[in-house]
Design a protein around this nucleic acid. Structure first.
Lengths: 218, 218
DNA sequence: ATTATCTATAGATCTATAGATAATGC
DNA sequence: ATTATCTATAGATCTATAGATAATGC
């Protein structure tokens, strides 16, 4: 057993991590396809992993699916963090994050569907998007850019809008995702007290190219 | 077989409807408890109905759960319609509906949980709350009360806010539901272009007593 | 006579594990 | 030598139905 918990992983540990990651990725694609009742055997086959290996990593299917959602949240959250470095205005950070999140649904439909599935449960809870949205909103409020009495309620509206927007884009594949997303972002900025013309301007600023961050999940 | 499809239901048909309703109600309480994998036998036992009867009404568990959600949507939607009769100002109708919906989560937690479960899927789709929200928003826009460019996107934000607000209230049982709901309603009204002071006033108007409409679901 | 419901169960499906095999560490 | 993985399967669980029973219609 490894003495130092954070020591360099050796080949064995890397192999274990690969197996686990394969299971998580398979779970994500089953979730994206809406097959939450898929038997474990099918999932391990999709992961190209033996049935028994499943129990080396997870106690139950629920545990696997939970890990799959958390991983998806982490991927997207980390991408947002990287894509917004260098921005100063907290209102701008918020707006860019929201606009990028809206574009995610077309760009990475599977990741998007995983997030939408457990959306509500995870909107509130600790990991992923919600704490970032909250951080940005609070920063903007402190800087006097947003007029927000209760950051938690503000976050609630924002998170809800993000989720339902994603659902809308999946349900109406013809709809222009950038236009819809920017429109919603503008509405939210106005709700936070940004003047209409400035809100409009902010939502027309160029966005960074998400490809600088490699997509981990299809 | 009955000649007239809309003829008065006879005793046999009433009994059949009762069995079906018992199954739907049982399914709703399993959903509220998060037990979406409950075996059919357990559900029929909870409904106090024979196992075989299940297949007289539904082809699969999914079909039953789907019917359960639709029924819940219908109950709440109809209640809202009844509670807002007599209101003239479309902005007021919208605000009262939203405020009543927010109060639902504490008032009828099971109904609320059923709605939150499939929330996103049903937010967009035809039945229940979404079309009502859309109707109200469009009416307010036509009357010049709301400044809304795209009613569908407005509805998206509103629906998302309603769902996440419900989740928040379940996650934080200590939080004052009326205060939180009215606050969110106010934010949304301002987003729609209602002046801040008027938005505040609208959200302090008295609400009708939901008890005039009997609650069909626990 | 007809229709819905009930009980009981065959057969399908799934989970969780035991024991064998392969990969890596030392 | 140790650890992770694989294959194969016993036993548990669930679904879907067949056939019997009860309720209603006429």
């Amino acid at each position: 057993m490894p003495e130092r918990i954070d020591a360099e992983p050796n080949r064995l540990e890397r192999r274990k991590a690969r197996t686990r990651a394969a299971l998580v990725r398979a779970a994500q694609s089953f979730m994206a396809a809406g097959k939450l009742n898929a038997p474990i055997l099918e999932i391990t086959q999709a992961a190209d992993v033996g049935m028994g290996s499943f129990y080396n990593h997870f106690q139950s299917k629920d545990e696997l699916f939970h890990a799959a959602v958390e991983a998806a949240l982490e991927v997207h959250g980390a991408a947002l963090d990287q894509l917004t470095v260098g921005l100063d205005d907290p209102a701008d950070i918020f707006a860019q994050s929201f606009r990028l999140t809206g574009r995610l649904h077309r760009r990475s439909p599977d990741l998007s569907k995983v997030l939408l599935h457990n959306g509500l449960a995870l909107a509130a809870s600790g990991k992923g998007l919600a704490p970032r949205a909250r951080r940005d909103i609070e920063a903007a409020a402190r800087a006097g850019r947003f007029n927000v009495r209760d950051p938690e309620l503000a976050m609630t509206i924002v998170t809800g809008a993000a989720l339902c927007l994603g659902q809308l884009l999946h349900d109406h594949p013809d709809r222009d995702d950038s236009e819809a997303t920017d429109h919603v972002t503008e509405d939210l900025l106005r709700m936070f007290g940004i003047p209409a013309d400035e809100a409009h301007e902010i939502c027309q600023r160029p966005l960074p190219d998400p490809d600088v961050v490699p997509r981990t999940v299809a």
